[in-house]
Simulated scan of single mutants.
Amino acid sequence: MRKGRLIAAIALLAFCGTIGDASAGEATIRVGNLDAVLTTPADVERPPVAVLIAGSGSTDRDGNGPQAKPATLKKLAEQLAERKIATLRYDKRGAGGWKPEFGKPEDFRFKDYVDDAVSLVNYLRDGGKFSRVAVAGHSEGGLVAILAARQTQLDRVVLLVTAARRQGDLLKAQLERRQIPPDVLEPILKAIDSIMAGQTVDPPPRGFAIAPSMQPSLASAFVIDPIDPLKSIDKPVLIVGGGRDLQVARLDFAALSAASPLAKTLWVPDMNHVLIDVTDDADNMAAYSQTDRALDTTMIDAVAAFIKADDKR
């Protein structure tokens, strides 16, 4: 939950390797203070490229966090490379622990995530090596993608299992679905409302140990409504949802689709929140830690076709 953690700064490396069945180049690079991996398909001159934006928490370039390790972004990068699309994926601020490069953690605001994505898009555009630049945001990363699309020149926006609600409201809905005793749940819900209203909750309630100094950082994420910013995007948008997603509901998919009526949409009935087809709740939870589990191919094909398509909005 500590969104104000800071991302490490690593020296510039350059290394080419082989990914999956398709030969692709992979280079670890540094853009400003961001550490990233640029994956490029072999034998393609000026391919399209997508910036892959991770979901909530201290998530790294592969899409792994401290607990869940589904390697969602790494697998997506591999599959897109096989479809002749380059990708840039990066460590979010906070991945790998609190580092000093981004200042004090209590000064973090959600706009910093957006600024990071914008800087990566601009980096890719400045080199002239790619035919077009897209952003593909996973979960909370979809909100970052929406906001980044308003601040820089993009060709495509992909929203993968992205919420249509403010994150504070989404968190409350997720907590209400869990089997949390009312005497524990109610103070947490009230604390979230207070933080969204710009208030400080001190001491924080049991089960929601967010230090008062970090609550403004959290509030900056909790209060952003994605709907109006999405309506203002004038570039092609693809919205993808999954029928077995335990974190983002179909109503979010529907609301995003309504806000962007010209967007292309894809609903995958058996796909969960980490973009894997699952059979039941147990399989769903297990998929969060199965790094070798394949992503849904219908989703991958749709994303690849959308990024490479010549249609304009």
Results as ranks from 00 to 15, higher is better:
residue 119 S to T: 12
residue 222 F to C: 05
residue 301 D to P: 01
residue 68 A to E: 15
residue 261 P to R: 09
residue 12 L to R: 12
residue 272 N to A: 11
residue 212 P to R: 06
residue 61 R to V: 06
residue 146 I to C: 04
residue 278 V to Y: 05
residue 8 A to F: 08
residue 190 K to D: 06
residue 85 I to W: 07
residue 96 G to N: 14
residue 222 F to H: 03
residue 85 I to H: 07
residue 275 L to Y: 14
residue 285 M to P: 00
residue 286 A to L: 09
residue 126 D to N: 02
residue 260 S to F: 01
residue 138 H to V: 09
residue 33 N to S: 12
residue 204 P to F: 09
residue 91 D to T: 03
residue 195 I to S: 06
residue 43 D to Y: 06
residue 103 G to H: 11
residue 143 L to H: 02
residue 268 V to W: 13
residue 95 A to F: 09
residue 124 L to Y: 10
residue 14 A to H: 12
residue 311 D to T: 06
residue 231 K to N: 04
residue 60 D to F: 13
residue 151 Q to E: 15
residue 83 R to S: 07
residue 264 K to G: 05
residue 168 G to C: 04
residue 262 L to C: 02
residue 274 V to H: 14
residue 183 D to W: 00
residue 146 I to W: 11
residue 44 V to S: 02
residue 15 F to A: 14
residue 279 T to M: 06
residue 48 P to T: 12
residue 301 D to H: 10
residue 137 G to L: 04
residue 71 A to E: 12
residue 127 G to W: 02
residue 186 E to Q: 06
residue 22 A to M: 04
residue 87 T to W: 06
residue 205 P to H: 01
residue 43 D to Q: 14
residue 112 D to C: 06
residue 40 T to G: 02
residue 91 D to N: 12
residue 51 V to R: 00
residue 299 M to I: 08
residue 272 N to K: 10
residue 92 K to D: 02
residue 264 K to T: 02
residue 249 A to M: 15
residue 259 A to S: 09
residue 163 A to Q: 10
residue 206 R to A: 08
residue 28 T to D: 11
residue 221 A to V: 04
residue 78 E to N: 08
residue 117 A to K: 00
residue 148 A to V: 13
residue 161 V to E: 15
residue 187 P to G: 03
residue 79 Q to F: 04
residue 269 P to L: 08
residue 122 N to T: 04
residue 274 V to M: 09
residue 265 T to V: 07
residue 98 W to A: 05
residue 286 A to I: 05
residue 79 Q to Y: 08
residue 168 G to A: 10
residue 50 A to G: 07
residue 55 G to R: 06
residue 124 L to D: 12
residue 13 L to K: 15
residue 51 V to L: 09
residue 187 P to Q: 01
residue 86 A to G: 06
residue 49 V to Q: 13
residue 266 L to R: 07
residue 1 M to T: 02
residue 212 P to C: 08
residue 277 D to Y: 01
residue 100 P to F: 14
residue 292 D to Y: 14
residue 272 N to V: 10
residue 222 F to Q: 05
residue 147 L to W: 11
residue 234 D to M: 10
residue 174 Q to D: 13
residue 61 R to S: 13
residue 296 D to K: 04
residue 109 R to D: 00
residue 276 I to A: 07
residue 88 L to G: 08
residue 296 D to A: 14
residue 46 R to M: 00
residue 222 F to Y: 10
residue 64 N to L: 12
residue 96 G to F: 07
residue 230 L to D: 10
residue 42 A to T: 01
residue 168 G to W: 03
residue 191 A to V: 13
residue 60 D to M: 11
residue 300 I to L: 14
residue 105 P to M: 13
residue 26 E to N: 14
residue 75 K to H: 05
residue 55 G to V: 08
residue 2 R to F: 03
residue 88 L to D: 11
residue 41 P to C: 13
residue 153 Q to Y: 06
residue 202 D to T: 01
residue 271 M to C: 11
residue 129 K to R: 07
residue 156 R to F: 03
residue 236 P to Q: 02
residue 63 G to Q: 07
residue 26 E to Q: 15
residue 38 L to P: 00
residue 198 G to K: 15
residue 30 R to W: 04
residue 57 G to E: 02
residue 193 D to H: 07
residue 62 D to R: 15
residue 79 Q to E: 15
residue 142 G to N: 08
residue 207 G to F: 08
residue 289 S to C: 02
